[in-house]
Design a protein around this nucleic acid. Structure first.
Length: 409
RNA sequence: GGGGGAAUACCCGAGUGGCCAAAGGGGCCAGACUGUAAAUCUGGUGGCACAGCCUUCGCAGGUUCGAAUCCUGCUUCCCCCA
């Protein structure tokens, strides 16, 4: 299959990419590949440290898919060895818990299944970097370490920040960029995808490739996708992420809570809508633009019908006043209820799991955030006796609610 | 190996014998306003069936009527010297 003209390829490749290093080599590389008919090897590495793939990961993965559509070869690296170290990027401390080989493999499997929602996994090469690191001798490792000086390592942004903040840097963490770079040598990468924080490793990979007599890779860096809070990078630990396997309605709710300022970035990085069209959308009502955005993304990971349904449901339940369709049912033990069938309000909220402590429940009630029943009657006092019945609805704020079910013992 | 400094709640950080469940900021929660956006304003933010009681200032002991605060040992981090 012939490759599209270089200019056309560049147009696709450049979208939503913050930095291409070194940029001037890209055209030449594409031209060479087109003339020889040899697809480029596009690398993306992921560490199976946690299970969820979120929209932040989807940014380079979507780019990977675009490369696939242009006819290039996707190469996914499962960092089962690097996972043991933990990527120091964007972290201000070392990973504390060590993952077992089994956990890592289980995560890897789950990861791949999710990655398959974005790229064509059947056409991709998948490697585990333990395949080469596992067999290395200490002498090999020493050899690798001899390629980098400590001063070079410390120029790396994350490390210098940590030095400044006086937080520890462990020796094994220093190996992380080396390992990642070595992956590029092993798989003969032409282009590596990642976030802008990967610059150091990407450049190190070039050094190692040159040293090994290979052609050097180009780093293609996407901007860091901010999370739903609109400020920090999307990440699991920050709780500001939208997972690509999440329920459509959950995704919709999260999208609608997104800061307006992020919308342009989300459109650019998470959809294929042309930027002209995006500008038109953003010129309209921001709420509509957000619904459209959510629709596109949800359609990609579920289907258009699911997206429409969640949009309609959001409009009903949250834009309107309909009761939520998925009220969680919480079981209350009969033995916990007083003999007269009631419980003080604060205690009930705690038992129902809506508040973590009775103190929190008291606060919620005092501030008028606690409500009762379908008509959302305000609970007036923390010791107000509430008659506990099956199906009783309880609310704390707008987002926490449940329905009760009484169980024996 | 020697010397000096540091560790406080989710995070940052004030507090150096009683007035400390511990200032201030961030985050977070709730209320008002709204588009469950942003900005703003208000209140809250250890636990307990709560005008009281219980537990918390790296860990373990000790001094004292009383310790986050003083002493001893330990752990971890930072800096300087080698």
């Amino acid at each position: 299959m012939p490759f599209p003209p270089v200019e056309d390829q560049l147009a696709v490749i450049r979208r939503g990419v913050e930095k291409i290093v070194p940029e001037e080599e890209l055209t030449a590389m594409l031209t060479r590949s087109r003339e020889s008919g040899e697809p480029l090897r596009i690398k993306y590495g992921i560490d199976p440290t946690a299970a969820d793939v979120h929209l932040g990961h989807s940014v380079p993965l979507r780019k990977m898919r675009q490369f696939q559509e242009l006819g290039h070869q996707a190469v996914i690296i499962i960092g089962n060895y690097t996972a043991m170290v933990g990527d120091p990027s964007g972290r201000d401390e070392a990973r504390t818990k060590k993952l077992s080989a089994d956990e890592v493999e289980a995560n890897a499997q789950f990861y791949l299944s999710q990655v398959g929602k974005v790229i064509d996994i059947d056409k991709a090469e998948v490697h585990r970097n333990g395949d080469w690191f596992g067999g290395m001798s200490f002498a090999d490792i020493l050899g690798l370490c001899g390629k980098v000086t400590v001063a070079q390592l410390l120029t790396r942004d994350d490390f210098s920040k940590r030095m400044q903040a006086e937080t520890p840097i462990y020796l094994h963490e220093c190996l992380y960029p080396l390992m990642q770079a070595w992956d590029s040598v092993e798989i003969k990468a032409d282009i590596e995808l990642g976030g802008t924080e990967q610059l150091y490793s990407f450049m190190l990979a070039r050094d190692l490739q040159k040293d090994a007599g290979l052609s050097q890779q180009i780093g293609l860096m996407s901007p860091i996708l901010v999370g739903t809070d609109g400020k920090k990078r999307m990440g699991k630990s920050l709780g500001n992420y939208i997972g690509i396997s999440e329920d459509p309605y959950e995704m919709m709710k999260k999208f609608m809570q997104l800061s307006d300022d992020c919308m342009r970035m989300y459109y650019e990085l998470l959809t294929d809508i042309s930027m002209e069209e995006v500008d038109t959308l953003l010129a309209g009502h921001p709420k509509e633009a957000k619904v459209t955005l959510a629709n596109h993304v949800i359609s990609e990971y579920h289907d258009p019908r699911a997206a429409d349904e969640s949009a309609a449901r959001w409009q009903n339940e949250i834009g309107g006043s309909a009761l939520p369709a998925d009220i969680p049912i919480v079981e209350i033990k009969r033995s916990d209820i007083n003999d007269d069938g009631t419980l003080p309000a604060a205690i009930l909220l705690k038992l129902a799991g809506l508040c973590q402590s009775s103190g929190e429940a008291r606060r919620a009630i005092k501030q008028g955030g606690a409500k009762l029943g379908e008509d959302k009657t305000k609970i007036e006092s923390h010791d107000q006796p509430i008659e506990v019945t099956d199906g009783l609805l309880l609310w704390v704020g707008k987002k926490r609610f449940c329905s009760l079910r009484i169980v024996e013992s």
